[in-house]
Design a protein around this nucleic acid. Structure first.
Length: 202
DNA sequence: ACGAAGATTGGCT
DNA sequence: GCCAATCTTCGTC
C-alpha cells in the first residue's frame, strides 16, 4: 500500500489513550537537513493534560515550555530532558486541551547509516532507537522542531497499511514518572508485544 | 535571584 | 546496579 500521511483530523481526537495505541505501527519520517530517516513506532505513552500529574500541563500549567501542548493536535512537542535529551511528543486533541503522546521507541526502517552516525555507533543493536532520548537522536530531532506541524515537510507520520490488533499491544505503567503520586501506576504505556525494538526497564 | 529536580542515557563496577 | 552528565524550568525567597 502506498504511504498516506496522517491527516490533521487524526490528531484532533479527544481520546489520547486511543491515539497512543493507534500510533503503534505507524511510520515516522524525518527529513531534517534534507536527509531522510524513517522508523516504525513501537512504543508510546499517553499524557492527559490538566488531570494527569505526570503531564507538564498538569492543573492547567501554562508556561513558555508547555505552550506548545495547547496548540491544536498535529504538531510536535519537543523539550529538553535532564539538560541532555530531546524528547518527542505528538500533541493531540483540539486547541487548549493539552494532551500529548510521548514517542518512546521506534524500529529503524530507512536511513540506518545516518542513524548510526547520529548515535555514534558502529553497528546496529537493540539500543539504537529504543528510548525517547535515543530515537530523537537517531532521527535528528531537536527542540528546533518544537511546535512544527506533523503534516509538513520536515517531520510527519504515515500510515503504511500495518494493522495492529489489541492482542498485539502490551499495556504497562509509564516509565520515569514516580513523582506523579496516584497517577504513577496508570496503564498508559503501550508497546508492540513482539517487537525487539522497545525500551527496556532498568 | 537561587536552587532543586527532571517523561534519560551510557559507562563503570 | 549505581552514578555522573548537563541545563532548562519552575517554585520559592
Amino acid at each position: 500500500m502506498k504511504p498516506v500521511i496522517l491527516s490533521p483530523d487524526f490528531y484532533l481526537d479527544e481520546d489520547v489513550l486511543a491515539i497512543s495505541q493507534a500510533l503503534l505501527g505507524k511510520f515516522i519520517v524525518s527529513q531534517v537537513g534534507n536527509q531522510r530517516t524513517v522508523g516504525m513506532i513501537v512504543e508510546t505513552e499517553a499524557y492527559r493534560g490538566p488531570e494527569d500529574k505526570a503531564s507538564h500541563a498538569y492543573n492547567g500549567r501554562h508556561t513558555a515550555r508547555t505552550k506548545t501542548m495547547y496548540l491544536p493536535g498535529g504538531v510536535a512537542y519537543v523539550y529538553l530532558c535532564y539538560g541532555l535529551h530531546h524528547l518527542l511528543n505528538v500533541v493531540t486533541a483540539p486547541a487548549n486541551t493539552p494532551h500529548a503522546v510521548l514517542i518512546r521507541a521506534i524500529e529503524p526502517i530507512e536511513g540506518l547509516p545516518l542513524m548510526l552516525k547520529r548515535r555514534n555507533l558502529m553497528h546496529a543493536h537493540a539500543r539504537l532507537t529504543a528510548g525517547p532520548g535515543a530515537l530523537t537522536q537517531a532521527l535528528g530531532i531537536t527542540r528546533q522542531l518544537d511546535a512544527i506541524p506533523l503534516t509538513g515537510s520536515l517531520l510527519w507520520i504515515e500510515e503504511r497499511g500495518i494493522k495492529v490488533s489489541k492482542k498485539e499491544i502490551l499495556v504497562t505503567p509509564r516509565i520515569g514518572i514516580d513523582y506523579a503520586q496516584e497517577h504513577r501506576d496508570l496503564p498508559w504505556r503501550f508497546c508492540l508485544k513482539n517487537s525487539p525494538w522497545t525500551s527496556k526497564r532498568r
